[in-house]
């Protein structure tokens, strides 16, 4: 693994650790609903501060269940991840293609100028070894 790859892997590892540690250490224990969303907690806090407040507008569309909601959330993440990997894949492919094209061009150019010399070598070679 190159140094670059190792650093990238280490970055990912720390991110994973940051997400897993609160779960592993059981930091959600003692809460009514461990690891609930902060957005939902804010709604509860609003209800505490303003018990009379009534939301005056409801979502036009609401996922019918937690499952459908999580499916839509994964769809969002998948869309994003798909576009991101498309970008990096395309870049990599282009770079490799350019390198190959350049290497090919260099070979052609090398072959064109080297042909007479190579022919000489080939002509001399067996003769030389035959001597």
């Amino acid at each position: 693994m190159s140094r670059n790859t190792r650093i990238n892997a280490l970055l990912l590892l720390v991110v994973v650790a940051l997400a897993v540690l609160p779960l592993a250490l059981g930091l959600g224990e003692g809460r009514e609903e461990p690891f609930a969303g902060a957005d939902a907690q804010a709604e509860t806090a609003i209800a505490e501060n303003a018990p009379d407040y009534e939301p005056w507008f409801t979502p036009l569309y609401e996922p019918p269940s937690g499952e459908v909601e999580s499916a839509l959330f994964s769809l969002q993440a998948a869309l994003g991840a798909g576009v991101l990997t498309y970008y990096f894949g395309l870049r990599r492919g282009r770079r490799q293609g350019e390198e190959r094209a350049r290497a090919g061009a260099a070979d052609d150019a090398g072959a064109a100028t080297a042909t007479p010399a190579a022919a000489d070598v080939r002509a001399d070679g067996p003769a030389a070894s035959g001597e």
């Binding site: 940051l18 997400a19 897993v20 540690l21 609160p22 779960l23 930091l27 959600g28 224990e29 003692g30 809460r31 461990p34 690891f35 609930a36 969303g37 902060a38 907690q41 959330f73 994964s74 969002q76 993440a77 994003g80």
Partner: peptide, 11 residues
């Protein structure tokens, strides 16, 4: 889209 657990015990 990623809801991640945090030290406060919420996500």
């Amino acid at each position: 889209a990623l809801k991640i657990p945090s030290v406060t015990g919420s996500c």
